[in-house]
């Protein structure tokens, strides 16, 4: 099972590309050679603070309205200070939940699905913001 994975994933493609180009040096040098820097890496786009970034998997449909569906992988940056309107992972009654943080007019955790009521944040309520969700990654082919 694992050997299939390796064959598909193109582990070596990235490393082989520059090598192939160097081989043509016997003839006319490739005009692209000087322009090869590196391939794009999704980490650069999604992970600003590697030591504080964690991945979690979404379950439930209370955040459909912002485009978070069950099975999505969420990128969570714990180093960011949560602001009004951020999608956050909050700890409510000892459990993780994904919600939108509202600080105005009153502090609350909002679902983005009309069938879920908001969670009011009172002064005495024990809510910790675990981190800010910066990206969601969906596999469109999964479960088909």
């Amino acid at each position: 099972m694992n050997s299939q994975l390796i064959a598909q994933a193109g582990v070596f493609a990235r490393k082989l590309l520059p090598l192939q180009l160097e081989k043509v040096s016997a003839g006319f040098p490739s005009p692209a050679q000087d322009y090869i820097e590196k391939t794009l890496d999704l980490n650069e786009l999604c992970v600003r603070h590697p030591s504080a970034t964690f991945y979690v998997r979404a379950a439930g449909d209370s955040m459909r309205g912002v485009g978070i569906f069950p099975g999505d992988v969420l990128v969570v940056d714990k180093s960011l200070a949560a602001r009004h309107g951020d999608i956050v992972i909050a700890i409510v009654d000892g459990e993780f939940t994904v919600k939108e943080l509202a600080l105005k007019p009153r502090p609350a955790l909002l679902a983005r699905n009309p069938s879920y009521p908001p969670i009011r944040l009172e002064a005495e309520s024990q809510v910790e913001i675990f981190g800010v969700v910066t990206h969601a990654i969906r596999d469109f082919r999964a479960n088909k």
Binding site: R57, G60, S62, P70, V73, F96, V98
Partner: peptide, 14 residues
């Protein structure tokens, strides 16, 4: 293995 295996990452309720 929450942080080192895709199959093990924490599941979070929405």
């Amino acid at each position: 293995r929450y942080t080192t295996r895709w199959s093990d990452i924490p599941v979070v309720k929405c």
